[in-house]
Deep mutational scan, measured.
Amino acid sequence: MTEYKLVVVGAGGVGKSALTIQLIQNHFVDEYDPTIEDSYRKQVVIDGETCLLDILDTAGQEEYSAMRDQYMRTGEGFLCVFAINNTKSFEDIHHYREQIKRVKDSEDVPMVLVGNKCDLPSRTVDTKQAQDLARSYGIPFIETSAKTRQGVDDAFYTLVREIRKHKEKMSKDGKKKKKKSKTKCVIM
């Protein structure tokens, strides 16, 4: 069974824990209790493949930012979460993405942009803004509501699919490099 290491990042209060708990335990946590770091595991079937999701729910508070490099190193894919009623959390996505790329030393890291709290009427981040940002990053965008469960499975499952595509691409690139290195030079 394939294991996928997913990391949920975003500013404090955007609903990272609520999304994760909704996926794992099928219930909505409405009281806000700032996370330092929590880890969850769940076995699911995605596109006919049974897999184990190892999900790291991270601290959004700035005082825990020193811990970010460590979990970013171990993560295979990242859910970059903002709240649709919090423009600052949307603007912060850029910083999370840049930090992930720096730590992973790669421009090509599996990510999904997630606009959470889409059940709320007080939207300050337009869907088109988020779609445009995701398009500019070359990553999928999904709106979710941890409260109603809308888009929750889709967000995590899409990230797994992005990781699969990335692994497939990397193995193809690896095979191309191996083929090239088999060419021999004969000096007579």
Rank of each mutant, 00 (worst) to 15 (best):
V125C: 12
V125W: 07
V125A: 14
V125G: 10
V125R: 03
V125Q: 15
V125D: 05
D126E: 11
D126L: 08
D126R: 03
D126Y: 07
D126C: 10
D126P: 04
D126G: 10
D126A: 08
T127G: 11
T127E: 11
T127H: 11
T127Y: 10
T127I: 11
T127K: 06
T127R: 07
T127S: 13
T127L: 08
T127P: 08
T127D: 14
K128Q: 14
K128P: 09
K128H: 13
K128W: 08
K128V: 11
K128A: 12
K128C: 10
K128L: 10
K128E: 14
K128T: 11
K128G: 13
Q129M: 13
Q129H: 12
Q129R: 13
Q129C: 05
Q129N: 15
Q129K: 14
Q129A: 12
Q129G: 13
Q129L: 11
A130Q: 03
A130I: 14
A130F: 15
A130R: 02
A130G: 09
A130W: 14
A130S: 05
A130N: 03
Q131S: 10
Q131I: 08
Q131N: 05
Q131C: 14
Q131E: 13
Q131M: 09
Q131K: 10
D132M: 08
D132V: 04
D132W: 04
D132A: 09
D132F: 03
D132G: 06
D132Q: 08
L133G: 03
L133I: 09
L133D: 06
L133H: 07
L133E: 10
L133A: 09
L133S: 05
L133Y: 07
L133M: 15
A134S: 07
A134L: 02
A134D: 01
R135N: 15
R135W: 04
R135I: 03
R135Y: 08
R135M: 05
R135H: 12
R135S: 09
R135K: 14
R135G: 08
R135V: 07
S136L: 08
S136A: 12
S136T: 05
S136M: 14
S136V: 09
Y137E: 03
Y137C: 10
Y137A: 05
Y137Q: 05
Y137G: 03
G138R: 04
G138C: 05
G138N: 12
G138W: 00
I139S: 03
I139Y: 13
I139L: 06
I139T: 02
F141S: 02
F141G: 01
I142L: 10
I142D: 00
I142G: 03
E143D: 13
T144K: 00
T144F: 00
S145R: 03
S145P: 00
S145T: 09
S145L: 01
A146S: 00
A146I: 00
A146Y: 00
K147E: 13
R149S: 13
R149L: 02
R149A: 04
R149V: 07
R149F: 03
R149E: 10
Q150S: 14
G151L: 10
G151W: 02
G151R: 04
G151Y: 06
G151N: 14
V152G: 03
V152N: 07
V152M: 13
V152A: 05
V152K: 01
V152C: 10
D153F: 02
D153G: 06
D153R: 03
D153E: 15
D153P: 06
D153S: 08
D154N: 11
D154R: 07
D154G: 07
D154V: 05
D154Y: 08
D154T: 10
D154Q: 13
D154K: 10
A155S: 04
A155W: 00
A155P: 04
A155H: 00
A155F: 00
A155L: 03
A155R: 00
A155V: 08
A155M: 04
A155Q: 00
F156T: 04
F156W: 03
F156L: 12
F156C: 07
F156Y: 08
F156H: 04
F156M: 13
F156R: 00
F156V: 14
F156K: 00
F156E: 01
Y157E: 15
Y157D: 13
Y157T: 14
Y157L: 10
Y157V: 14
Y157S: 15
Y157Q: 14
Y157K: 12
T158S: 06
T158R: 06
T158V: 04
T158N: 10
T158I: 04
T158G: 06
T158L: 08
L159N: 00
L159W: 01
L159E: 01
L159S: 00
L159K: 00
L159Q: 00
L159Y: 00
L159T: 01
L159V: 08
V160R: 02
V160L: 03
V160Q: 02
V160W: 02
V160I: 12
V160E: 01
V160K: 06
E162C: 04
E162L: 02
E162P: 00
E162N: 07
E162M: 06
E162S: 04
E162V: 02
E162D: 02
E162Y: 01
E162A: 07
R164C: 05
R164S: 05
R164L: 03
R164G: 05
R164Y: 03
R164N: 10
R164V: 07
K165G: 11
K165M: 09
K165C: 01
K165Q: 08
K165T: 05
K165R: 11
H166N: 12
H166P: 02
H166G: 09
H166Q: 09
H166I: 06
H166L: 11
H166E: 03
H166W: 04
H166C: 05
H166T: 07
H166V: 08
H166Y: 12
H166F: 12
K167T: 12
K167A: 08
K167D: 11
K167R: 12
K167G: 11
K167W: 02
K167Y: 05
E168G: 13
E168R: 09
E168V: 09
K169Y: 05
K169G: 06
K169D: 12
K169I: 14
K169C: 13
K169R: 10
M170V: 12
K172T: 15
K172S: 15
D173N: 06
D173C: 04
D173T: 08
D173L: 05
G174V: 08
G174S: 14
K175G: 13
K176Y: 08
K176R: 08
K176L: 12
K176C: 12
K176F: 06
K176W: 04
K176V: 02
K177L: 15
K177G: 14
K178A: 09
K178Y: 09
K178L: 05
K178N: 15
K180M: 09
K180L: 13
K180A: 08
S181R: 06
S181V: 07
K182W: 01
K184P: 07
K184E: 15
C185W: 01
C185V: 01
C185G: 15
V186N: 15
V186R: 00
I187S: 15
M188K: 15
M188T: 15
M188F: 01
M188I: 03
M188V: 08
